[in-house]
Amino acid sequence: MNGKFEGKVWKYGDNINTDVIFPGKYTYQKMEPEEMAKHALEDLDPEFVSKVSEGDILVAGKNFGMGSSREQAAIAIKYAGINVIIARSFSRIYFRNAINAGMPAIIAPDAVDAIKEGDKVIVDMENGKIITPKGEFTFPSYPATVMNILKKGGLINFIKANI
């Protein structure tokens, strides 16, 4: 993870659940991350994977990723090209899965309200800032444990480096 992300926004609503992010019928099929990415948001927005580009930013309402513990719901979105998700709030397991996959999950309700789909947005991780067409917003920095996992690109890389 480098310190800054800049990308175009795809925006969705509240309570987006893991079944519409990555349908249960694929959960026990063995897939590489690139294959998972082909099903990202399949039952929410079937067009998503064809319109998303590398480096885009996902913005959502409250309780993003509620439901199942399936990690593919984070990995599929990451490998579809999304580098960072900004939401009003995240479901607990999804928040962990995103961090552990090396994808920052940022809680910033004011920024979510200000951002429109298609906006160009900059996320500055080191300084806890989101720069949008409607102005700058701040978010609290992560605890050191979480930041270290993100810096290594996820939990597994973090453990490899520390074992």
Binding site: S69, R70, E71, A74, I93, R96, N97, N100, A101, P143, T145, V146, I149, G154, L155, I156, I159, I163
Partner: peptide, 20 residues
């Protein structure tokens, strides 16, 4: 508590995990 798959792999390897 429920956790993700990588977290289980991490516990298998190291015996521990981060929690808030």
């Amino acid at each position: 508590a429920g956790i993700g798959r990588s977290e289980v792999a991490a516990i298998w390897a190291t015996g521990e995990l981060w929690f808030s």
